[in-house]
């Protein structure tokens, strides 16, 4: 009971504090911009902890955050092997291969406006499809190890990046291209100095979508067969053997990895497209 009341009190206090912080005169400082969402997140965790303890929820159903935390500390080795197998080998390699392939394809296609007009609608359509479904087929083709996971990721990443890059390469207007011509710039120079930089906001848009897809693809592919390691493998066997706290630990690692991966791409975007209005505002 004390847990329940404590959590609710904490919730109310944190809420009141957040309202004061957000409406205070220094709400635009970086410290407060970080503090408010962090306090919100902590409140959620405290509520979770309090509800689980206060209502005596069985840990088979939902373990408390503190318990998940101690599982993470106690099984770092397992978590690291899984992280290495799924994220570093499967998702990351697939992401790099897929993004590079899409980028190269976009630049090649871009030379022909006929192909661009034909490919853009198809690419847009395919990017909206539930491509995860091909996971069992690719696992069948490439075997159980990380190669098949990377292959799934390649296919999932390819179309969003392709579509966005092609769109980005069409961003420069006639005036800018004419200016390059008056400088006697050739195709390559125009591409490198004008069109690729102009396409970068679009490319990063595609890359950001692709980061999430990459992790989803790598984990789903493991449900269809994997060596005895990997996050998807651990989650599906953990659910079966009621190792729920380990499953939640894997979910926490996946969430952290996903957030970090996304943050990395967003950080790169900021460095590369510093000139774009959306970054300077």
């Amino acid at each position: 009971m004390i847990w329940l009341v404590g959590a609710l009190v904490f919730w109310v206090v944190a809420w009141a504090l957040n309202i004061r912080l957000a409406n205070s005169s220094r709400a635009d400082t970086i410290a407060l911009r970080v503090a408010v969402p962090v306090l919100f997140g902590v409140t959620l965790l405290v509520l979770w902890e309090g509800l689980v303890r206060g209502l005596g929820v069985s840990q088979v159903i939902l373990p408390a955050p503190s318990q998940i935390g101690s599982t993470i500390i106690n099984s770092t080795e397992t978590l690291w092997t899984d992280f290495n197998q799924t994220v570093l080998k499967g998702a990351l390699r697939g992401f790099v291969i897929g993004a590079l392939a899409a980028f190269a394809t976009a630049i090649m296609i871009d030379r022909s406006s006929f192909l661009t007009r034909g490919l853009l609608p198809i690419g847009n359509f395919v990017a909206a499809l539930p491509i995860v479904g091909i996971a069992p087929i690719l696992v069948n083709w490439f075997g159980f190890d990380w190669q098949s996971k990377a292959a799934v990721v390649v296919v999932m990443v390819f179309f969003p990046v392709l579509v966005n890059t092609v769109q980005g390469l069409r961003e420069t207007d006639k005036m800018q291209q004419d200016l390059m011509r008056t400088y006697a710039a050739g195709y390559l120079q125009t591409l490198l100095k004008l069109r690729l930089p102009a396409a970068m906001p679009f490319v990063f848009n595609g890359l950001k979508i692709a980061t999430t897809l990459a992790l989803i693809g790598a984990i789903v592919a493991e449900y269809f067969g994997s060596p005895t390691r990997g996050m998807g493998f651990r989650i599906s066997t953990g659910v079966g053997s009621l190792d729920i706290d380990l499953v939640w630990a894997e979910i926490a690692v996946a969430a952290l990895a996903g957030t970090f991966f996304y943050g990395l791409v967003a950080w790169l975007e900021k460095r590369v497209t510093f000139w774009h209005p959306s970054q300077t505002g």
Binding site: I61, T212, L215
Partner: peptide
């Protein structure tokens, strides 16, 4: 609401970086 803007928006972005497939079996068990 400023509070909602400051506290919800970052978590909405973070929620999408979490691979939902990892959560899917748990949602079903729950």
């Amino acid at each position: 609401s400023r509070v909602a803007n400051m506290s919800l928006m970052p978590w909405a972005v973070i929620s999408q970086t979490i691979p939902i497939v990892a959560l899917a079996p748990m949602i079903i068990v729950l």
